[in-house]
Design a protein around this nucleic acid. Structure first.
Lengths: 343, 343
DNA sequence: TGTTTAACTGTAACCGGTTACAGTTAACTG
DNA sequence: CAGTTAACTGTAACCGGTTACAGTTAAACA
C-alpha cells in the first residue's frame, strides 16, 4: 500500500502538499492538485487511518453502549445512529452492556481506551453520580440516551416517561375503567418510577383513589408479566385493566390471562409501553405507548457529531410519547362478561 | 495522559522496557516489572491505541457488515459476535448494508479503509464473483456469513438451506398434506433457491408431483407474503398448506388468510423459516425452521479471530437446520372444514 | 581461566501521517 | 520602486508506540 511519501515523490511535490490535497486545504494550486490526485489514483493511495489518528488525535469514531444488541428496543436506535454517523464519514463502534453494572462499566472503559471522539451511552444500571463523575473526568463529549440526569440535562436524549405513564392510564380511564392495575419495571430504574408517577397522576386527575394493592414491581421481561399477574391474584385484587411497564410484560400478562380463561380485551384491557415491533403483530395487537427509539438514535448521533465539532450550545432533547391504539383495550361498557375477578 | 516516555523516565528505565512490560514480554526481571507497573499505576498510563496500531499495523478491530442493524435476524448474531470478540480484547465495528448493492459495497470499503484485522460479511446482494475478487485482493481474512460460495467454502459460515426447505415441506407431508404451496424469497438469492430445491426434493421423495402453479416468488417481507397469496388466488390454486420462505412472509400469509376468513391452522397449515423472536409470540405461534443465527455470530467471530492469529487450517462451518413445531400447522386429518379453495 | 550463553536492558530507527514555520513567487499598493 | 500581501510549496518536528540490534552482566561450561 502506497504511502504519502511515495505519492509525493511520484507527483514531484512535498508530503505536505499531498496532505493538503487529501484534506481539501485550499492553499493548493489547481495544477498541483490535479497532479497529486493523478498520482494518488495511479498508486492506489489510501491514507493510513492509524497514522492520521495518531497525528490528529482524533479517531473519527463514535462509541455507543446499548443494553443489548439483539433486543427489539435498541435495533432501530442503532440503525438510525449508524446511518447519521456514517453519512458524516465516521464510524460507529457498538458495545453491549449486557444488563449488568460490571459489563456496563467495562463497555464504557473499553470505548474510552479506544479514544472515540464521542460516546453515546444507554446505561441502565450505572448510578447518576457515577455517570456525572464520568462525564466530568473524560475529555470527550458524552451523550446519554433514554435517561434524564438533571445535572447533565443538555447531554440527554430522553422521553417524558411520566407523560407516557399518564397517557396509558388516561386512555384506560377514558374507556371507563377505574380498577386499573400497574405492573412496573424495576423501581431502581428511573423510567419505571416515572411511568408509575404518571399512572398516579392520571388516577388523581380523574379522582380515582390510588390503590397500592394494584401495583406490582417486576422486571421488564415477559415472564415477569406472568409472575406479576400471579401476585395480583394472590392479593385477591380486582381490576378490569392493566398498564404494563413495557410491551414484553404486557404480552406476558395477556398470555397468562388467556391461560386462565380471561379474554383480552373483552374481559380485561391491557396497555403496553415501547411499541416494540412485535406488538403490532401480536394478537390482539397491543395498544401501547410509542417510544421514538429511532429518533433517539438519530438525534443522539447528531448531537454527538455536533459536540465533536466543538459546539456547546446544546439544547436538551426531550421527546413526548404518543399512544398507539390497537386491539388490546376496549371500553368498559363493552366488557362482555362481569368484571374480572381472579380470586 | 501519560506517554510511554514519561513512564520510562518515572520508573528509571527505557521505553523499550516499559513496552515489554505492557506487552507481557518475558525478558524483564521481576523487580523492573514491578517498578514499571507501579509507575504506570501512579501516572494513570494507558497505551495510545493509535500509536500502537501504527507501529504494529493491527487495529485490534474486526469489522462486520449486516443487512440491517434493527432486524430480528441480525440481532442475535451481532450479540454473540460482539461477546466473543470483546472477550478476546478486540472491538467490533458494525456497519449496515441497508439492502442495496451500492450500500453493501460502501460498507465493505468503509471497513477496509479502517484497516480492520478481519471482516465478517453478511452480503445479500453482492454477486459471488465480486466477493471472490474481494477476498483475493484484500490482504485480510474475510468471513462470509449465511452464504456458501464454493470457491471460498472454508471462509463461509452457513446453513444448509436445502435441508431446511426439505424439513419444512417434509413436516407438512408427514401431516398428510399434498397440495403444498411455496412462497419463495427473491430467487437471485441463493438461500431462496436452496430452500426451493429442498421443497422439491421433499415432494419428489414423497412421490408428490411438483406443481409450478403452487410456487410464487416474493421478497421476504410481510407484505410480500400477502401479495403472494393474492397471486395464488388469482391462479385459482388449491392447497391446504404453505411453506413460507421466511417467517415474515409466513406471518403475512396468515394475516391475509385470516382476512379472507380462512382459519390457520384448521383450514390451512403454514410453516415459516428463520425462527425469528416474534414467531414464538405470534398467534398462532409459528411452526418454523430454526436458523441458529446466534451460533453464526459466535462461530464467525471465532473463525475471524483464529485467522487473525495466522491460522489457515479452517474447516467449513455448515449448520443443519431444525424444525420448531408450534401452532400454525395441523395434520390434514384434523382439518375441520373441507379443503381450502381460494377460488 | 577463557568462552559461551542466557537474561536483561537501552538506543534509535521506524510506522505514516499532520502542521507550524519558513521560504518563494508574483501581484498589488502607496 | 520599495514594501506589503496573498498564494502556494517545502522542511522537519512531532504524535506515541514497537522492535531490531547492540550492549551489559552474570552464571554455566569446557
Amino acid at each position: 500500500m502506497a504511502t504519502i511519501r511515495e505519492v509525493s515523490k511520484h507527483a514531484g511535490v512535498s508530503v505536505a502538499t499531498v496532505s493538503r490535497v487529501v484534506n481539501g486545504n485550499k492553499w493548493v494550486s489547481e495544477a498541483t492538485r490535479l497532479r497529486v490526485l493523478e498520482s494518488m489514483e495511479e498508486l492506489g493511495y489510501e491514507p493510513n487511518s492509524f497514522a492520521r489518528s495518531l497525528a490528529t488525535n482524533r479517531s473519527n469514531t463514535i462509541g455507543m453502549v446499548v443494553g443489548d444488541l439483539s433486543g427489539p428496543f435498541f435495533g432501530p436506535m442503532m440503525q438510525r445512529a449508524e446511518q447519521v454517523i456514517r453519512d458524516a464519514g465516521k464510524h460507529l463502534i457498538i458495545t453491549s452492556g449486557h444488563s449488568t453494572l460490571e459489563e456496563e462499566r467495562d463497555a464504557v472503559q473499553f470505548l474510552l481506551k479506544r479514544r472515540c471522539d464521542a460516546l453515546i451511552l444507554h446505561l441502565d444500571l450505572m448510578p447518576d453520580e457515577e455517570i456525572i463523575e464520568l462525564c466530568d473526568k473524560s475529555p470527550l463529549p458524552i451523550i446519554l440516551v433514554n435517561r434524564l440526569i438533571p445535572e447533565l440535562a443538555d447531554r440527554c436524549v430522553s422521553l417524558d416517561n411520566e407523560a407516557g405513564g399518564y397517557l396509558a392510564t388516561r386512555h384506560l380511564l377514558d374507556l371507563g375503567h377505574t380498577r386499573i392495575a400497574h405492573i412496573t419495571g424495576p423501581l431502581y430504574k428511573s423510567d419505571a418510577r416515572d411511568r408509575l408517577a404518571g399512572y398516579r397522576r392520571a388516577l388523581e386527575t380523574a379522582g380515582v383513589p390510588y390503590d397500592e394493592s394494584l401495583v406490582v414491581e417486576s422486571d421488564y421481561l415477559e415472564s415477569g408479566g406472568a409472575q406479576a399477574l400471579d401476585r395480583l391474584k394472590r392479593r385477591e385484587a380486582e381490576f378490569t385493566a392493566v398498564v404494563g411497564g413495557n410491551d414484553l410484560m404486557a404480552i406476558g400478562v395477556i398470555n397468562a390471562l388467556r391461560q386462565q380463561g380471561v379474554r383480552v380485551p373483552e374481559q380485561c384491557s391491557v396497555v403496553g409501553y415501547d411499541d416494540v415491533v412485535m406488538s403490532a403483530y401480536f394478537v390482539p395487537a397491543l395498544t401501547t405507548v410509542r417510544v421514538p427509539v429511532d429518533d433517539f438514535g438519530a438525534d443522539a448521533a447528531r448531537l454527538a457529531l455536533k459536540l465533536c465539532e466543538g459546539a456547546s450550545d446544546t439544547a436538551q432533547l426531550r421527546f413526548q410519547p404518543e399512544l398507539v391504539e390497537r386491539q388490546s383495550t376496549l371500553a368498559k361498557g363493552e366488557v362482555m362478561a362481569e368484571n374480572l375477578s381472579l380470586v
